[in-house]
Design a protein around this nucleic acid. Structure first.
Length: 464
RNA sequence: GUCCCCAUCGUCUAGAGGCCUAGGACACCAGCCUUUCACGCUGGGUACGCGGGUUCGAAUCCCGCUGGGGACGCCA
């Protein structure tokens, strides 16, 4: 039987990195086994689900390269089927109607808590005659769960997990309004979608016992389960807004490359020896659930940034140029095709020095803009009267310089020699004049990319 | 509160009884390279939560403790 996995987010907000990692693991596992990776949108909570969130999730997955192999299944569209299964269970005596009201159940929970017992449904309608049903109350349908023995789940990541059935109560599978509960809908959908491996967050581990009881009640074959640990914030607590960026697209905005984020997420909780940089293909070839760790991992932005830097250096120049120009354009910065050409000419040197697309964009700005750059305060301080004299002098000789990248360094070295100074003493004022900053790609590359005329203008402006 | 899960450097991890005086990566510190910055390179410190077992031998197996996380809804 071919492997089929699914990622099943509920569209109540944007896709966060925990979900992204779950999706990644599902895709990797399916691909590794030559199977399919599907998407199911769990939108049964109509009050909290939004179309906007659905679109955002789809977009985030696409950006990450984690789009599903088939069109997404919307859980809300399957309500009739969920009800049908619940009624089958009712007919088979594996479920029963419960006429408890919400108030009654709340009181029951309250009383149990007071008495120091776990808040469980006491099964009062389990064997009671339906003829005693109160008038005017719409019943819900509950699973008739086994009371003795235990339920065991052989989890592919967590190992064998067992719970006493006495700890579990008869959960509601169909609400009094006829809509399915989440736990029930998931089981029916996973079964109908022929999901073979349910790979999801650790927070669902205890839900699994109850879901497994539904499979058993229906006589359905259980899928394999794999519960992967959650991702925590840097402080060890559950990931939330206060941890800074958690939404996938926030990382995109911060200039993180999708392949870098995937690589980072993969290494959070999964490892293969000392390998740190893994392409998608490599990850597919190596991914095994038994190599997934069992402890929760913390988010480390520094490591992500470092990883992003290595991917940036390997990235295609044209792609980066397009990205930089798009960002510069958003800022309302002026640039023409000339600016774009300069950024492109400098890209091999620029990408060597950036960790994110944000860094890269900032570093490329001087080349994209027309005219002399704004000079940073720190740089301005180094533009001493002596330095200005030197720049003015240099400008006079610039016409004689051979305008080829490799010849420019030699020419500059010769110039410094004649002046009896070190190259650095020429290069630094020149760098400031050309870029407005004390840091930039090699000065010869900058000169060459800017062109003789533009360079001249900037040098003279700085020498003023 | 009850149940379930987890536990190696600050962080992510390697480690499936001897290969471990515990390896790699990020971060940190020192240095090298160098026209700045970055990349790269060299070196450095820092970890098996605690206590009991089992064994000739335990980071690895068992038990307890402690700590962390998760689940207990007619939410998903």
């Amino acid at each position: 039987m071919s492997v089929r996995t699914r990622f099943a987010p509920s569209p109540t907000g944007f896709l966060h990195i925990g979900g992204a990692r779950t999706a990644l693991f599902n895709l990797l596992f399916a691909r590794h086994h030559g199977g399919q990776y599907l998407l199911r949108v769990e939108d049964t909570d109509r009050a909290r689900s939004t179309e906007d969130a659905v679109q955002q999730i789809l977009h985030s997955l696409e950006w990450l390269g984690l789009s599903p192999d088939e069109p997404p299944v919307f859980q809300s569209s399957r309500a009739a089927r969920h009800a049908e299964v619940a009624h089958e269970m009712l007919a088979a005596g594996r479920a029963y109607r419960c006429w408890c009201t919400a108030e009654e159940l709340a009181a029951m929970r309250e009383a149990a808590m007071q008495a120091g017992r776990p808040p469980r449904y006491d099964g009062r309608w389990r064997d009671r005659d339906p003829a005693e049903a109160p008038a005017g109350v719409q019943p819900s349908i509950r699973l008739k769960a086994p009371r003795d023995g235990s339920t065991v789940v052989e989890d592919l990541v967590q190992g064998r997990v067992e719970v006493q059935n006495a700890e579990l109560d008869d959960m509601i599978i169909l609400r009094s309004d006829g809509s399915p509960t989440y736990l029930h809908a998931v089981v029916v959908d996973d079964h109908d979608m022929r999901i073979t491996h349910v790979i999801r967050g650790d927070d669902h581990l205890t839900n699994t016992f109850r879901q497994v009881q539904i499979y058993d009640a229906m006589g359905w074959h259980r899928p394999h389960f794999a519960h992967i640990p959650l991702i925590h914030g840097a402080d060890g607590a559950k990931l939330s807004k206060r941890h800074g960026a958690v939404g996938v697209m926030e990382f995109a905005d911060q200039g993180i490359l999708p392949e870098a984020l995937c690589n980072y997420l993969l290494r959070l909780g999964w490892g293969h020896g000392d390998e740190e940089i893994l392409t998608r293909d490599r990850a597919i070839a190596l991914f095994e659930l038994r190599d997934v760790g069992r402890a929760a991992a913390r988010m480390d932005d520094k490591k992500l940034a470092h990883l992003n830097g290595t991917y940036l250096r390997q990235a295609d120049d044209d792609r980066l140029v397009a990205e930089v120009l798009r960002r510069l354009g958003k800022e309302g910065a002026l640039f023409g095709t000339i600016g774009g050409d300069r950024v492109k000419a400098l890209m091999p040197e620029l990408k060597e020095r950036a960790k994110t697309l944000v860094d890269l964009t900032a570093a490329a700005a001087f080349a994209a803009h027309e005219g002399p750059p704004t000079i940073e305060a720190k740089a301005q301080a180094l533009l001493t009267p002596e330095a200005k004299v030197l720049l003015a002098d240099l400008a006079q000789f610039l016409n004689t310089a051979p305008w080829e990248r490799q010849d420019l360094v030699t020419w500059l070295r010769d110039y410094a020699d004649v002046k009896g100074i070190k190259l650095g003493q020429v290069a630094q004022p020149l760098r400031i004049a050309l870029t407005g900053s004390t840091q930039s790609p090699p000065i010869d590359a900058v000169l060459w990319a800017l062109g003789r005329t533009e360079a001249m203008d900037r040098i003279l402006a700085a020498a003023e």
